[in-house]
Design a protein around this nucleic acid. Sequence first.
DNA 1: CCAGGACGGGAGAGCGCTCTCGCGCAATCT
DNA 2: AGATTGCGCGAGAGCGCTCTCCCGTCCTGG
Lengths: 370, 370
Amino acid sequence: MEATPPTGLGVVATAHDGGPTGPPERARAAGSGAPTLEDVARVAGVSRATVSRVVNGQRRVAAEIQAVVREAIATTGYVPNLAARSLVTRRTGAVIVVVSGVEEQGSPSTIDFADPFFGRVVGGMLRALRPRDVDPILMLAETDSDRARVLSSLRNGNADGALVVSTRGDDPMPRLLVEAGLPAVVFARPGRPIPLSFVDVANRDGARLAAEHLVARGCRHVAAISGPLDVPSAQDRLSGFQDAMARHGQAFVPTVGGNFTYESGVAAMTSLLDGYQDLDGVFASNDLMALGAIEALQAARRRVPDDVRVVGFDDSSLGALSRPALTSVRQPIEEMAAEMARILLDTIADPGRRVTSTIFEPTLRIRDSA
Amino acid sequence: MEATPPTGLGVVATAHDGGPTGPPERARAAGSGAPTLEDVARVAGVSRATVSRVVNGQRRVAAEIQAVVREAIATTGYVPNLAARSLVTRRTGAVIVVVSGVEEQGSPSTIDFADPFFGRVVGGMLRALRPRDVDPILMLAETDSDRARVLSSLRNGNADGALVVSTRGDDPMPRLLVEAGLPAVVFARPGRPIPLSFVDVANRDGARLAAEHLVARGCRHVAAISGPLDVPSAQDRLSGFQDAMARHGQAFVPTVGGNFTYESGVAAMTSLLDGYQDLDGVFASNDLMALGAIEALQAARRRVPDDVRVVGFDDSSLGALSRPALTSVRQPIEEMAAEMARILLDTIADPGRRVTSTIFEPTLRIRDSA
DNA sequence: CCAGGACGGGAGAGCGCTCTCGCGCAATCT
DNA sequence: AGATTGCGCGAGAGCGCTCTCCCGTCCTGG
């Protein structure tokens, strides 16, 4: 591996040792301060083009000239100006991470930044982006104007592509991106089928895992708390769970819908207890609702897991810390996010690339609640 | 819904209705697709400079010409190319959000993206940045080379400034930024005093709130679980708590140090119980440790809050969801983050601006644990 | 009635970079 | 030996934008 660009605070200037051929000019011109290609070229005694070639490692450059140029780069503390580069290459080395939600009347936003999910996704992307020297620009997309802003940023090369994390099934962002022909990858299968790459977890398999675990633990009367059914993943989790239970003899699974919040979990469980006193197992489509369900169960004097077993979905850090610790279906969020980044980068490099999807297998994280 | 730009790889063009004065040229030149200032100028029948003035609202432009230009902009679907603009203005309209940690031998990173703190900070910044059309670029800074990368990005105008969130007291990032003379604002007072703007919460006041609450609830034998004392905030929280207790007659507060993790909270509490059986109140320097303390207390058959009252610090979402729900000192993270963004933007706009610090008052969020 | 502003607009010079083109030189082929 | 190829380098043209000049026009005051 050849020496990476030296960087070094950049402040400069390892003493300029009156280079071999270098004229007695200063390494830095008067300008704004940062050394340019021109400066490096002068110090190295070559042309701008050659320095550019060395920096980008494009065409072959004689070894000795390379050495001289590299030294000149080190001497001047040169770092490429990305605006200038991107102006001509039409590549920015940046992608937009769109956190997309749909504005609601009730709450100010569907986007909950305190949700650890958010950080885990971004963290996963970062780990995959950084090695390829790509930086993520964060943008919110709640309103139409937000979405327009994302689109124009992309359209005039402010960024090379988008990684979209939606909080709702009916989010228009993915469709807009496809229509604009922009490189993008979304987290979770979009509500309507569109030609767009995505990564997802095998939601049905995760639900099956939960079902089989409850059955194995001896549960005979289980219920489900589902998410909003317009969200594909909620849909899959529910039907996957129902199917698996049917396969184990329980034809009918009492189900109440929630909206992925803690409160909705409490409410759903309460209403479930109203109609079905003999429940001994519950599957909630996410951890927050599972936690709410546990709260409602305890309020109703049902012990967890002794009387009723509860399984969640997400394996969030909340579930690990609550008591009883929550048994939950784990989706490898970080890896999924990293894969999104990889797919996007590949798509940007080769726009003709087919739309792909990668489905990750969930695992069951068994703790105390079931 | 109006017809969105017809797709096609951005190829084009709301039907050009043979504009008023427009020559029969196409609105878009052959080029790469995106319309440029030149295109707009041609359609509007004015010069590039005039269009630029309208776009940037700089000098006065005759009202009617403005109208013509605006229409031309709409017709062509023009959006400024930020790379080109930034090349000449040396402003990018982007800031770097540096999530900074220090590499450790043990764990792969001190940065925990699953921590809701992270998302809340970013969310707060976003809300303040967006109205001023500035986008955050996310960067990790764990290694020296990461830090060098942040610095060079800044130095060559890849971004205008940095918002730094450190996870450790001895983080070198703030110092490096100051030395390089780059605009930056950090979250929480830096370990060593340096001329750098920051926002923080009045940690001592928060600790006092906790102390007074415990005293008011009748606690007579309280202990503290502190964070690493090289972190200024941990230091302040502890001494603030000790001082406040002293003012209320308890001269000595048994203290055990933790490292802000759940496990360290469990360990600290366990060791505290070993030495002091009659404890009736505990203050932990963050919620995670408070939660750990509660776990240890319950394991030792102490009821919370009946036997021992526990107060945490952070008012994290975890604390709200745990049982008993955690009483905690709340710092307005989102507002603090927003303030960071504002200070940074002001500093960028006026580099001569004094270094400032804004300290936020914490409040006590009383729930069930105390 | 004419000089002096004030103001609105155009021309053009770059910002720092990449990339195509062409030239010179050495190595290879006929 | 001459002709041909190929390779490495330099020259120079922009990428799309802003901004400083400068010039023409209109308004105002002496």
